[in-house]
Simulated scan of single mutants.
Amino acid sequence: MPSYKIITSYLEHVKSAYSLDVTIKDYSGFIYTSEDLERVIRPYLAHCSPYCMCIKETERGYQRCLAQNKPLYQKCKQRKPFFGYCPAGLCELVVPIASKTKVYGSINVSHFALEEGKGDFLRERLLKREPESRKIAARLLYQQFVRPVSMDINELQYSLALLAEFIVEIVRNANEAQQQKNPELSDESRIRAYIAEHTDDKILAQQVMSACNISRLSLKSCIENANVKNFREYVNGIRLEQSEKLLLETDKTPKEIAVSLGFKDYQHFCRLFLEKVKITPSDYQKYYKHENRPGQN
């Protein structure tokens, strides 16, 4: 647990020393690698400043906020820190949490202004249809919590990149420790683990055989045992099983889960899910999230 506390200590330092809001985005479910990691990171999974909460109280603001996850994830694939503005006018420094093969998430630091007037323009555009009282409240909170840059951005970016590398190392070590507990994994278990670790890639059969050290015959046997026609259906089947778990055990929306598991688009995910489970992902989450899984008493 001590190594995990380093994450909390530094994030709290950033918040208090620079009066910034810090959020960690999870695009892959990496926080569930270990209970200690989840306990440390969960408090940072959403913006919770008074200004953000004011914006999210509106349906339009809440939906626009959620819609940012997919483009953020796509841009994080470049594996370089970047700046951007959210629809509510907040400038964010985004630092990817990523290895060479997988984007796990990102560290997002916000509540500073880089371009004068841009944040005000975006905020007013987002709240255009809201009552004047809501606009006034948002303006006052924006003025209170959003400040000009008062720190060395390059230094902040560098230190957050080091923190992101540290988190990747923690996830990698936790995964290796889990594998050491089960050294005699079957071919199918190794394949499943590899697919789970490479959700942002278009996985090829040759990649799996090489990474998992299995023969073409062994892979063919796994596909046949799963009662599917080909390798692509086999991969989709494993990812659909993962999606069922995430729908019930996380607060992610079906769209966010589809993106995090590497489905090419949300409609494709819904069609495959409906074929397999005989219910849409949204209804599955709605009906079973706080109940037993289907088929259980």
Rank of each mutant, 00 (worst) to 15 (best):
T199K: 10
I31W: 05
S19K: 15
K118D: 06
Y32D: 07
K202W: 05
S49H: 08
S210D: 10
A164I: 03
A193V: 01
Q267W: 00
G119A: 05
M53T: 04
C212R: 06
A258S: 15
E224V: 01
G84I: 01
F166N: 02
P50R: 03
N225Q: 13
E244F: 01
N173T: 08
K102A: 15
D251W: 02
K128N: 07
N69F: 12
A137D: 13
D21V: 09
N173Y: 09
R147L: 13
Y158D: 05
D120N: 06
Y288R: 07
I223Q: 00
V235C: 03
S133Q: 08
N230D: 15
V259K: 06
G84R: 05
Q78L: 08
E256C: 04
E244K: 15
N297L: 12
S3Y: 06
I136K: 15
F112N: 08
S99Y: 12
H13N: 12
F121L: 10
L66V: 07
E124R: 14
I203G: 00
E116F: 05
Q63T: 09
Q74W: 08
Q143M: 11
C76A: 12
C86W: 04
A67T: 05
I279T: 13
F263T: 04
I238V: 12
T199V: 05
Q285S: 13
F30R: 07
E130L: 01
N154S: 11
R139K: 13
G89A: 04
A113M: 15
Q296A: 06
Y18N: 10
R39Y: 13
Y158W: 02
L219N: 02
K77Q: 15
P148D: 08
I203F: 00
I153L: 11
E256T: 02
T8I: 03
K56E: 09
S189W: 01
S106L: 13
L163D: 00
Q144M: 13
Q296G: 00
E176V: 12
A226F: 03
Q178A: 09
E197A: 15
G295Y: 08
S9A: 15
K255Q: 12
I153Y: 01
I191V: 14
C212Y: 02
E256S: 12
Y27H: 09
N227R: 11
G237P: 01
K102Y: 10
G295M: 09
I214R: 12
S99A: 14
R60G: 04
V22N: 13
Y18E: 07
A211K: 15
S28E: 07
S189K: 12
E155L: 06
G295A: 11
Y284G: 03
K264G: 00
E275P: 00
E35S: 15
R271Q: 07
A137I: 03
I195Y: 01
L141H: 13
S3I: 08
S9R: 14
I191A: 02
M151N: 04
L122K: 06
V259P: 03
A174S: 14
F83H: 10
Y85N: 03
V168Y: 02
S159W: 02
S49N: 11
R125H: 10
L248C: 04
R239E: 02
K100C: 06
I214D: 13
D283V: 07
Q78P: 00
Q143G: 11
A138N: 08
M209A: 04
K220Q: 10
L126K: 04
I279V: 14
K128L: 13
G105N: 11
H13A: 11
R190M: 07
E244S: 06
E224L: 02
C48R: 14
L217P: 00
Y51E: 09
A113I: 15
D251L: 04
G117F: 04
L274Q: 10
